[in-house]
Design a protein around this nucleic acid. Structure first.
Lengths: 242, 242
DNA sequence: CTCGGTGTGGCACTCAGTACCCTCGATTAT
DNA sequence: ATAATCGAGGGTACTGAGTGCCACACCGAG
């Protein structure tokens, strides 16, 4: 029922992880699904997987971590993606694309993702652990935005708020999809949710990169028709502050 | 169905008897500060506080919970505050005011708050626990916004995004203040940070000047028999501190 | 063959958290 | 007054997560 695939990292050819990790994840999910998280001990998992108890903690730092086996790699992907992002591009669009990386991981394994969702929904310990996972993503996004907004006086605050908004929008669409059991187009749902964030915080979603590219003296401000005046002023201020 | 009604708190000027709960918090912080969180065991805490080990878990569900002894009451305050909010008012302003309730709690005990901040900053377990605390606030704010935005097609998404933005802005200002060791005016800093959120999201409905005056002073605490003591204490604290 | 590095299993230990039972003191019914 | 009840706290023993340490097996290099 629960199948785990190890996707290759973008960072070079990590060839064929030892199957023991996958065996542990599979065994854990089988037991968690049929018996519950708290009712399953580490000994149950390792005996089903046919490995030693000590080996479990070589691959996972805690019992909760086995439920989120792919997020460490995804966080590394996100970090690499943002590090390679165009300095002249719209940073809000960039962090949205970074969030879509996480979405792709969920969408790549719908059955696994839905099973994990049902589990985390009803186990407080797992919900807490998921929060810390999401927190790392959010801090990564915020860190990227902070570097791009370094010139602004309110750059750090703005970065934190936008990162939180992006994560909230992403999770809103993702959770709706997970709650539905994996039906429908998640990508479109997330795009629509993120559109709300980009439209309000981004540099002008449709048409152009509203915020000025920061490599020369020419400042171009693009705003949609009907944009409130205060937002226009904000954009101009942002461009001039740089 | 039996009920337990708690009505205590002598009217005299004394701070009542030093309750066991407070003694545990004090002993825990003393040891955590001088020895570290992981290096302190429950036995150390209870022996310093002069109580039995079993009593610790009567008041706190976990070792981490003793570091955040006031948040349960504050969450109850926030819930009550939002439940009494004017339906015609700007919901964004209302959740900002609700966030200011949390701020007031931090600002009320600067030394304690700063000490806790330094502790949570360097203990992963506490950071995770804090995330779940913050998450409950955020979900409360989002729940309030969802009811007020029920008419909108994107109401739920909007509620989640705004709640996340409010929490992020609040925490940004709060953490700056905590990092500085409790210097300066937190209230003003939070007001300025929240202004960014209100300016972009607020202004839903202009309306009544109702300042939700709650004149009733009668508070009744009802708990089922067998309720853990820490839960009862939190409820009573929440009621008395309002 | 030995040597060192690595991955693994086994054992014992600490400690958080829980279940169960005991004592003590205060209140109340008989 | 005595017994019964009840709630608060203490004590003991247990489960299970997570760690440290060591032994063993494999494997490429010398």
């Amino acid at each position: 029922m629960s199948e785990v695939q190890e996707q290759d990292r973008a960072a070079g050819g990590g060839p064929a992880r030892p199957t023991m990790r996958d065996a542990l994840v599979e065994a854990a999910f089988e037991l968690f699904s049929e018996r519950g998280f708290e009712q399953t001990t580490i000994d149950d998992i390792v005996s089903l997987a046919g490995v030693g108890r000590r080996s479990f903690f070589r691959y996972f730092p805690s019992k909760e971590a086995v439920v989120f086996p792919d997020h460490d790699g995804c966080l590394a992907d996100m970090t690499a993606f943002l590090a390679a992002a165009d300095p002249a591009g719209d940073p809000v669009e960039q962090v949205c694309d970074a969030a879509r990386l996480v979405l792709r991981m969920y969408a790549g394994n719908p059955a696994f993702s839905v099973g994990r969702y049902r589990l985390t929904k009803q186990v407080p310990t797992l919900r807490t652990h998921e929060l810390s996972v999401v927190w790392r993503y959010e801090r990564t996004l915020a860190g990227h935005l902070r570097t791009r907004y370094a010139a602004r006086s309110d750059g750090a605050l703005r970065a934190d708020v936008i990162a939180a908004a992006v994560v909230a929008a992403h999770n809103y669409a993702l959770r709706s999809w997970l709650r539905s059991g994996g039906e429908g187009d998640v990508g479109a749902a997330v795009d629509e949710a993120l559109k709300l964030v980009v439209d309000t915080w981004g540099g002008g979603a449709e048409g152009g990169s509203g915020a000025a590219s920061q490599d020369d003296e020419v400042v171009v401000m693009v705003a949609r028709r009907g944009t409130p005046m205060w937002r226009v002023v904000q954009g101009v201020e942002a461009a001039l502050e740089g």
